[in-house]
Design a protein around this nucleic acid. Structure first.
Lengths: 172, 172
DNA sequence: TCACTCATGTAAGATGTTACATGATTCG
DNA sequence: CGAATCATGTAACATCTTACATGAGTGA
């Protein structure tokens, strides 16, 4: 459900192919949702079957044909309905914290290496997000809301680094 | 995989029934993983089939019989192997941020209500975690590591509240 | 008497991951 | 010449969610 509504939301910005959508999941919306190709193509097919999107075959000039998906009026209605409806509750599932929770089964070296990896991942992600942040413009409400979600990601990454500082000091 | 290892980790602390495990997922490990009964019973059956756990039927005195699951030596080995192995990468999936991202499709009231609900959820969760924190003792390494994961949850909840302050000010 | 806790599970469907499969163009 | 990018999808499997189904004991 959420995935299909995110795709509708992106199609509402501009018509796109599955491939284009994949790029969005790897960049603009990657800080709060991810999806791989199999999911995207499956969901696009369902959106078309449900009348929420239409496909137009655009012949590729120097590449394969593009299956451009365009949101329909029914699709816009479904998107608006979802937005105004009951929010889904978010369940946390973080394998890294699971490892720390049972981390007594690791020796000091193992634990240090686990924390170091996490730090590196978070650092790289933070760097990427900061790059996105500096490129972003936010003139209107829509863009400012999108930017706010990026700031949410940035804030949590900085919190994670601060937490890692503390934990590494305690268990170093 | 992660779920089965978390269950093994809990069984390594003490033998338990599926029902006991459910209580852990709703409390002690709920800040980094969740699971419902269907998942738990299914996974327990697989652990037994794989020789990672054994069942003992304990007649209930004033309740149904308990199917106590106990970790085996092979189970302990599997847990240790997972702990030392390649960490899975964590993908964020937050429906709330998705709604904010496309939040221009909501009017000011709709947006305010979305943010207010989130605040209330986060506040309640924070209160619960603070309660857990104050009850916790951390004399040894194992307990201190478990507590560190709770502190991670607390830090992120506080960050989320601070972010909500900013966003509500901007879009109030 | 009614709601809650303890305790077990099954079935069906939705969602997510991994591997398989193809083929042209562009850039170093 | 080889790697990356553009672009499509399928198949099989794993995981997660929701609804169905049962029944005794406890406390207000």
């Amino acid at each position: 459900m959420v995935l299909s509504r995110i795709i509708l939301g992106l199609l509402a910005i501009a018509p796109m192919t599955g491939y284009d959508l994949k790029r969005h999941f790897d960049s603009t919306v990657g800080h709060f949702w991810s999806a791989d190709r199999a999911q995207i193509y499956r969901t696009l097919a369902r959106l078309v079957a449900d009348g929420h999107a239409e496909v137009e075959k655009v012949p590729g000039e120097r590449a394969p044909d593009r299956q451009e998906h365009r949101i329909t009026a029914a699709g816009r209605a479904a998107l608006a309905e979802w937005l105004a409806g009951e929010p889904e509750r978010h369940v946390e599932r973080d394998p890294f914290l699971a490892r720390v929770f049972f981390g007594d089964g690791l020796d000091d070296d193992g634990l240090r290496s686990l924390l170091a990896r996490r730090r590196e991942e978070v650092r790289a992600r933070l760097e990427r997000f900061e790059g996105m942040r500096s490129e972003a413009a936010a003139p209107d409400r829509a863009a400012r809301l999108r930017l706010a979600t990026l700031d949410n990601g940035l804030a949590h990454l900085r919190t994670e680094l601060a937490w890692l500082d503390e934990v590494e000091e305690e268990f170093a």
